[in-house]
Design a protein around this nucleic acid. Structure first.
Length: 507
RNA sequence: GGCCCGUUCGUCUAGGGGUUAGGACGCAAGAUUUUCAUUCUUGUAGCAGGGGUUCGAAUCCCCUACGGGCUACCA
């Protein structure tokens, strides 16, 4: 019987969602949609100490902005709720109990301080303490203590944790959809805590129980979980769920653009790129972290970039709509090795999407900025301006930098250009040109160009000597679109005024 | 330290026994643009090292090196 494909994205609300997390969500989403399945959002808030206010709302808003809208989950409804693990607290204990009953787990009474002590001692001997088959028999747990004492400790309300009793020597072999066969020997693994003394399950227990109860068919998560896969497999087995256990896929990590290690918030701060989808204000420190959205990235560019970081379609196609991604997506084409993030390429994706967007749409996104500056322009004209300059922008926010001179006169002139292009007779020529411009009747780029050419021929002046100076007067630099287009859009009177002003200032 | 995963241009990647090792970003040059940018063309640059296996290895195997992850009552 084919089960309906169900995948989940299960972040912890410990802070803003990292772009690596967004990519994990994206791959889950693509896989679900590709297979006509469900994409769920589960909030894994079993660690009360690390809970950060606002993080959950941030995660939900991020997914929405990215277009990765869950079919079920916190904030999205569904029949398998609640989807917040803290609200499922009552569910987990029975499974921990049943594991103990069946001999797969045991109570452990060692305090955190005692274990810390053991770790320190081991470290001093250049050893590593591990709660495992070698040490469990000399520690305080239901394997070493008498039945009576265990009962007594439990009844007296003493704190305890439940640990998984890792089998002594078994090879756990599992087929990872991305990595292929991965094997572990249980002798190397420790007795992980499944249930904490505060009554909450750890990730391992909660994750397995919830994935089972929520009928998850495929677990697609980051590589940092690969090492705990054998524990999870064994848990499914011990709980009697081995036949319906999900398939596993472990995604490669996103690494720093340069240097060692995985991508972190600091890299973004240092090199000037966002690491998070949305702007985030740390509730504790009040510190801000930039976001892709606020930095001006289009969500479709962000998704496209993320999809190609660690996955490819096997073709040479680089630009994908979400629909195309869904169609092309295949877990077996996910790359196994970690990928260094390249902020330049992220920008390149955005540039591409910006160039593709209709000027009218970009104009509407640009408009609020102009209004804030007290500038009013008709839509038609703004659209024409945007059409002229959008090719030189990466982001909507670059539009102003590239088009400000259409709205306000330059306040200074690029020194280098002045030095090399502004000759002794330039002012004189430009004044003659303003007189000519005043006589132009049809103020359209084409006809201005036509009559201007005639004027220049009559004067026997070279174009080169005046084109750049005129541009300098109108724009302030030697850059920009076709000069006659600028002339038209700036307007006849304003052009004349700007040239006269430049002549006066630069003579 | 132990365990697990990985390693093709600077970066993202294709290629999985016979390829001139392909594409993209970046960078450089040229063309177009009387500017600048866009665009187009071209160029630049790579199979971590060593052993096998094989007629033949980037590709399969082993070792080493390097990189990454895990090694919490965190996820």
């Amino acid at each position: 019987m084919e089960r309906r494909v169900r995948v989940r994205f299960a972040p912890s609300p410990t802070g803003p969602l990292h772009m690596g997390g967004v990519r994990t969500a994206l791959f889950n989403y693509l896989f679900a949609k590709k297979n006509g399945g469900d994409f769920l959002l589960r909030i894994e808030d079993t660690d009360q100490n690390r809970y950060v206010a606002g993080a959950e709302a941030y995660i939900i808003e991020s997914l929405k902005w990215c277009g990765l809208v869950p079919d079920e989950g916190v904030g999205f409804g569904g029949e398998y709720g609640p989807y917040r693990q803290s609200e499922r607290k009552a569910i987990y204990k029975q499974y921990a109990d049943s594991l103990i009953e069946n001999g797969f787990a045991y109570y452990a009474f060692d305090t955190a301080e005692e274990l810390d002590e053991l770790r320190k001692k081991a470290e001093a001997d250049k050893q590593v303490f591990s709660y495992d088959l070698h040490t469990r028999n000399s520690l305080k747990n239901s394997l070493t203590l008498s039945k009576e004492e265990v009962t007594e400790r439990l009844q007296s309300g003493q704190h305890y944790v439940v640990r998984f009793k890792m089998p002594e020597n078994r090879d756990v072999v599992e087929e990872d959809l991305i990595r292929g066969r991965v094997s572990f020997n249980t002798a190397q693994l420790d007795d992980k805590v499944l249930f904490k003394s505060d009554g909450m399950p750890t990730y391992h227990l909660a994750n397995v129980v919830d994935d089972h109860l929520m009928k998850i068919t495929h677990v697609i998560r980051g590589e940092e979980w690969l090492s705990s896969m054998p524990l999870h497999i064994l848990l499914y087995e011990s709980l009697g769920w081995i036949d319906t256990r999900p398939c596993f896929s472990h995604l490669p990590l996103i690494l720093k653009p340069e240097g060692k290690g995985k991508l972190s918030k600091r890299d973004g701060d240092k090199m000037g790129f966002p690491v998070f989808p949305l702007l985030w204000k740390d509730p504790e420190s009040g510190e801000y972290s930039r976001g892709y959205r606020e930095d001006g990235y289009f969500p479709e560019a962000f998704m496209n970039m993320l999809a190609l970081l660690g996955w490819n379609s096997g073709t040479e196609q680089e630009f994908f709509t979400v629909e195309e991604l869904i169609d092309a997506f295949d877990l077996s084409r996910v790359v196994k090795s970690g990928a260094r993030f390249d902020p330049e390429k992220a920008k390149w994706f955005n540039r591409h999407y910006l160039h593709q967007k209709p000027s009218a749409e970009l104009a509407q996104q640009f408009k609020p900025e102009l209004i804030a500056k007290g500038i009013e322009v008709e839509d038609i004209k703004l659209e024409r301006i945007v059409a002229k300059v959008k090719d030189r922008c990466d982001f909507v926010k670059d539009l102003w930098l590239q088009s400000h001179y259409f709205f306000v006169a330059p306040e200074s002139y690029d020194e280098k250009t002045v030095k090399s292009k502004w000759k002794a007779d330039t002012g004189e020529k430009l004044l003659a040109i303003t007189e000519f411009l005043a006589t132009v009747e049809n103020w359209k780029a084409e006809s201005i160009k036509e009559s201007f050419s005639a004027f220049m021929t009559e004067k026997e002046w070279g174009f080169g000597a005046v084109m750049v100076p005129i541009r300098l007067a109108l724009v302030g630099t030697s850059t920009g679109p076709d000069l006659f287009e600028i002339l038209e859009l700036v307007g006849q009177q304003e052009c004349i005024r700007r040239i006269e002003k430049a002549v006066e200032l630069l003579k």
